[in-house]
Design a protein around this nucleic acid. Sequence first.
DNA 1: TGTTAGCACTTGGGCATGTTGAGTGCTAAT
DNA 2: ATTAGCACTCAACATGCCCAAGTGCTAACA
Lengths: 337, 337
Amino acid sequence: MSEPRKLEVLRAIVEDYVHSREPVGSKALVERHHLGVSSATIRNDMALLEEEGLIAAPHTSAGRIPTDKGYRLFVDRISEVKPLSAAERRAIHSLLEGPDDVEDILERTVRLLSQLTNQVAVVQYPHLSRARVRHIEFVLLAPRQVLVVLIADSGKVEQGVVHAATDAADEELMALRARFLGSIAGSQLDLMPQVLPSVVALCPPALRNLAGALAHGLERLAERSRDERMVMAGTANLARSNVDFPLSIGPVLEALEEQVVMLRLLSDMAEDPRGVTVSIGRENPYDGLSEASVVATGYGPGSSAKIGILGPTRMDYPNTMAAVRAVARYLSRILGG
Amino acid sequence: MSEPRKLEVLRAIVEDYVHSREPVGSKALVERHHLGVSSATIRNDMALLEEEGLIAAPHTSAGRIPTDKGYRLFVDRISEVKPLSAAERRAIHSLLEGPDDVEDILERTVRLLSQLTNQVAVVQYPHLSRARVRHIEFVLLAPRQVLVVLIADSGKVEQGVVHAATDAADEELMALRARFLGSIAGSQLDLMPQVLPSVVALCPPALRNLAGALAHGLERLAERSRDERMVMAGTANLARSNVDFPLSIGPVLEALEEQVVMLRLLSDMAEDPRGVTVSIGRENPYDGLSEASVVATGYGPGSSAKIGILGPTRMDYPNTMAAVRAVARYLSRILGG
DNA sequence: TGTTAGCACTTGGGCATGTTGAGTGCTAAT
DNA sequence: ATTAGCACTCAACATGCCCAAGTGCTAACA
């Protein structure tokens, strides 16, 4: 038995199964792919593949389908990342146009990726922990309500409402703003908890109370911008691509709604040297995703934030990986510029 | 045949069907509800109800299920909005706590509503067209990139990036900010297109270019905040409550992703004097929702923004309506205060 | 030694057939 | 107007049968 042919057979099985969604048998295999051997030979190979746990038969006399392990081998050793089609390239390019507001861009990106792959696309907001304070603003909404706005040099704006114990005057706020800004402008968001208390301590006693509340608000904002968020699109694809429901979409929708779950999932995916990381079926730490795969990669400075897609284990890995990688690259380029 | 009993029968059918998800027959009906008559009598009544198009039989010898028209009559004339349970009341109350950032509140509200009803919950951002400018901020991100921030007195913050044709200096921006703010502070967002050009015209020629770009940016922000947005939660409920899939969730997910569709749907729902508006099955203008119902109501000042839920036509209307109404009231109270 | 043809064997899916039970509509009696 | 009774309908379920697809094995072959 030749080792290379065995892999070729696995590849053929994966490709056919992804395409047809039906267990694939030895005969159909030799017909569609011009391997130079007979079905009997293929059967021998298949028996070996099954022994190794790479494929499995749903019942005695049906064709074989790839196991998670089979997909893994396929992704790692067999598949070549296909180049994108011209149309896809064009679609990504047109993303370059339009306003370059971070939120807008991410929203359009994730929509694009979901269309490109026909899967659910997810993108994590860029990490901002290394961002610095560019500007702050205190706005009096009501006598005891102050809107606190924090602008980072990354262009991200965070806002929140702070309640004061006593009435605050506009002039006081102006003064405090100057004070705070003088001390924290240019500092990393990370360092806010260290820097802010000293500012409060230096305030005149009359303002100390208000200053404390504002400092607390700023801290919360700084933390929130570190606190991760995500955007997603294409959930309808879940229903579409699973008309025959091998993937029960309930648990998947649940996972998607629990953004925390998705964010951890993305964060935990190690960076693959080939550029795109794949997590297949039961490899996923979350139970609801045991029939799903995640294809993700980093983007932006240091590839710290992640972008990726979620779909059934039975997916077209080569194309999906190519799409994810391409979109991530473009995204990095846009945000970096 | 007595008219009141006929309605009673319809009510019983609706209630049983909503509960059991199975066509309900005459015999089961007399058993479960103590109507003082025999199944034969019920059968006669049912025949009449069917003639009027209020109920239908899936096949010759099965029980009856309510039609859209039947649900409509049920909602309009029969059902009483049930009071909420103590637990539900408590859940809503605990919503009162926590930061009262608009976004936060809406997010928690929509989550709560989806849990309360076991449906998909949707909430529209409050209309801001009548809001006024409280504050603006120009922040230099790069020599030719300016972050424009617009803060409305409603507490909403909008931001966007503006590209300048030439390099801009910090002092110039400060000067322009003072100029703009002086003219537009307190004006309605609506009026920005009228007010802004005159400000630009009054600028010294050297700054006119930059001022024009900034004015354009501000206009965009003002428009965007009028431009409606929504939050939703509970999509997983779609899969859960439809294990046997009488409601194919694909089209529904599509509708939910097309936020424009949902927003129009909500906006178009007339305000019902009883407080909650219901749109049932094919009454919905959107095709994908022909097997779904929307229960919605207004909240906030003038009840201008909408909050509601989306679920299968076969839903527990009384409880759902009660939940939507109660949550909307609490939300109004929180935002109003 | 690897490949192949041939064959017996397994099994899910499709189909025709039979049975059951819930449910209806009608009629005649109350 | 209501009801009991009855004949009728039909989906759901079960049973049995056959078929096609697919397997594993063995013996022959290059």
